[in-house]
Design a protein around this nucleic acid. Structure first.
Lengths: 200, 200
DNA sequence: TCGTTAAGTATGTGAGCACCTACTTTGTTC
DNA sequence: GAACAAAGTAGGTGCTCACATACTTAACGA
């Protein structure tokens, strides 16, 4: 016998199931039938909760854009004394979060490539705000004379790019992780390069 | 009246048309009907040249993996005197190549996300070899004492990550380019950060 | 305990997909 | 200029997809 859930619960369960499938196979690559099977219900239940497949996809993206742990961590770290702490916190959080659940990164890439209109919202909440945060932090360092005069936004993106690319290579292209190098060491190296690279 | 081409020519034309469509909409998002229409022929012609849609996709990836201008440029630059020249050459080439034709980058991402089996070959020829090249260049610098002892592969990926992420943001997420900063300046900044960051 | 509400299902349906079959046109060769 | 091979087409075919319809079952308050 199948478990009977409340509307709210079932809705959440459908979203969770769909996240997994969409992130692995994309919007077009995932069928509503598959989602229903994986959730252990009939297809019609999906359409009772979401008018269209696209609406389900949008619901996912909205839910996923909300969980904004990353920025909070970064902001807290920004009150630390050393520049290294801030960058390290951001880098490690990105690594940890993505390695624990790569579906977000894949979803972001898929929606951008497939040209989903909600990709922008997603990008805005997940990427842009992080860029802004790091950028303004670096700009302050420049103004205070700790860093040489650089375009802070480009530097911020550069640092994030290092980390993102590292993740991309492992999570997306399946390159096996270097056995003797820990994530902490990798982030540490990136942090030290950027900080040495922009200091006066 | 439609132009009648030789088999070889038509085959090439189909591939070119398909590259454009696949890179914009992915493998699953592109229909053989669309390709035929865009190429100005009937669908059956596609299947006369390629047994399956997947075979057409594979043909594309093989063709696209071959054009190895990038590494050649890099290798030439490696004979230059200054480290900056080498990194600059690699970075600029990546920028220039991708901005002229973003389809390659999109194709690479799509095939990795969609889990196409040829993604690996693609990755190997386009990405991995560049990593190896830069990595061994940096390793030499470390051995010769110009750079501090760092994991050369991580650094190489870090630098490439900076450039790739910059491209990703603009080509994929459609962020408008900063009006006052030229690509040359951006690459120059990345190069200077990495070189200052790893020098003794 | 009965009536209402909402969760849930079985079974379509029309559109669009990859791919096929049976055929016609065109360039080339002797 | 006839024979032949290869380029090209019109019009399917069966399958899968998103989504719809008509129904059944369970939960729960009055």
């Amino acid at each position: 016998m199948r478990e009977r859930l409340s509307g709210e619960e079932r809705r959440r369960q459908i979203v969770e199931t769909a996240v997994d499938l969409f992130s692995r196979k994309g919007f077009r690559g995932t069928t509503t039938r598959e989602i229903a099977e994986a959730a252990g219900i009939s297809e019609a239940m999906i359409f009772k909760h979401f008018a269209t497949k696209r609406e389900l996809y949008s619901a996912i993206i909205e839910v996923k854009s909300e969980t904004e742990e990353l920025l909070a961590t970064a902001a807290k770290a920004a009150r630390g004394t050393h520049d290294a702490e801030v960058l390290r916190a951001v880098g490690l959080k990105m690594l940890e979060q993505t390695e624990r659940d790569p579906s977000l990164m894949r979803l972001l890439l898929f929606s951008a490539l497939e040209g989903h209109e909600l990709s922008e919202i997603f990008f805005e909440s997940r990427v842009r705000r992080l860029h802004e945060f790091l950028s303004s932090y670096i700009r302050k360092g420049v103004e205070e004379g700790r860093f040489r005069p650089v375009d802070s936004l480009i530097v911020a993106r550069g640092f994030i790019g290092m980390v993102v690319h590292y993740l991309l290579i492992h999570e997306l292209f399946g390159v096996k992780r270097p056995p003797r190098t820990s994530p902490e060491e990798v982030v540490e190296l990136f942090v030290s390069i950027v900080l040495k690279g922009i200091k006066r």
